[in-house]
């Protein structure tokens, strides 16, 4: 019996990230400096945090396009309360709101069986609309300097402590997903939902929890947004869903579910954050940012789909081949045999 060692999908992502830095560094040497690398990593924290949550959803085989609106809404709620001096309440309500939006998504998808793209597109619209209602369409400004300064606290040189907080969250959630029995349900549900059901795994429950985690981490991203950006417009967080979905896919998480890791999502988020900076360093207007993200997303998904389809066809043929008995067929040359 042979042992099969396959390259982890995350390795490819790391190589991509390194090539990106080296390649751009060759054109503009100041891109490949310690300062710039740390700056890129620091700027990836919100993407990373939101990617952690959405990774759970994608790994269960679903999708969540409402994270951008959730981030904006929770940022608005948190920001307005922080502005009025209630930091604790602001954080509490933001997290609760994120969980609640996730619960609604999860309920619609797992219980009412609405396709996740439609359900979350709907909540995305609802929540985005509610931001305008909540803020009256106005910007939330005058966030206390103290709260804004939180995002600038440095640990170990130039790294922000937000970055370490994010890494800690990644490690903890990664351990939860891979080492705890319940955490492994997410991959099982995405890999083979019928098989998971047969083993007594609560498929619907697992999906609901995945969406709640997605909402929760979007809310954490929203809180960080208040501190990092310092003001909240009604369009805050717009386009984040594409960025974090692309980050997950770049990090080796398969959109068909069951494959990938949070480590991969973290690397993918770093790539996404870097690409915005790449444009600046190569002298392109940053207007191209979304276009390039979209192209990357599609190219990778197409590659993955072709790969998966080939594999499925190979397995089908193997199965069919095994069904043939290896005995002599009845010779039919003389048929019809009663002439």
């Amino acid at each position: 019996m042979h042992k099969k060692h396959s390259i982890p999908r995350e390795t490819t992502s790391v190589i991509f990230l390194i090539l990106l830095f080296v390649g751009v560094g060759l054109i503009n040497a100041s891109f490949l400096t310690v300062d710039n690398i740390i700056l890129s990593l620091n700027s990836s924290v919100i993407y990373t945090v939101v990617a952690i949550g959405i990774a759970f959803v994608i790994i269960t085989g679903e999708i969540d396009v409402s994270v951008g609106a959730t981030l904006g809404m929770t940022a608005a709620v948190c920001g307005s309360m922080v502005r009025d001096g209630n930091v604790g309440m602001g954080i509490f309500w933001a997290l609760l709101l994120g969980l609640f939006i996730g619960l609604i998504n999860g309920f619609g998808i797992a219980i009412l069986r609405i396709p996740s793209i439609i359900m979350t597109l709907g909540t995305n619209g609802i929540v985005r609309g509610l931001i305008y209602v909540y803020t009256d369409g106005k910007w939330i400004e005058n966030i206390p300097l103290k709260f804004k300064a939180l995002s600038q606290v440095r640990l170990f040189g130039s790294f922000t402590w937000f970055y370490f907080l994010t890494l800690l969250a990644v490690v903890l959630m990664h351990l939860f997903m891979t080492k705890s029995q319940v955490g492994r349900y997410f991959k099982a549900v995405g890999d083979n939902p019928n098989g998971a059901n047969l083993l007594g795994i609560p498929v619907s429950g697992t999906k609901i929890i995945a969406f709640m985690l997605s909402g929760l981490f979007a809310a954490i991203g929203g809180i960080m947004y208040v501190s990092r950006v310092g003001f909240i417009t009604p369009i805050a967080g717009i386009g984040y869903e594409m960025k974090v979905i692309a980050a997950c896919v770049l990090g080796g998480i398969s959109l068909t579910g069951g494959v990938g890791s949070l480590m991969g999502a973290t690397i993918g988020a770093a790539i996404m954050a870097s690409i915005s900076r790449v444009l600046v360093f190569l002298g392109f207007p940053s207007d191209y940012d979304n276009t390039i993200t979209g192209i990357l997303l599609i190219v990778i998904v197409v590659f993955d789909a072709v790969f998966q389809a080939n594999l499925a066809e190979k397995m089908r043929r193997q199965r069919l081949a095994a069904k043939i008995v290896h005995t002599q067929s009845v010779a039919l040359e003389e048929a019809p045999d009663h002439e």
Partner: peptide, 13 residues
């Protein structure tokens, strides 16, 4: 004709 496990195993008039 009858097919059994991928092969023709009998012909019937």
């Amino acid at each position: 004709i009858s097919l059994f496990c991928g092969k023709v195993n009998k012909i019937f008039s």
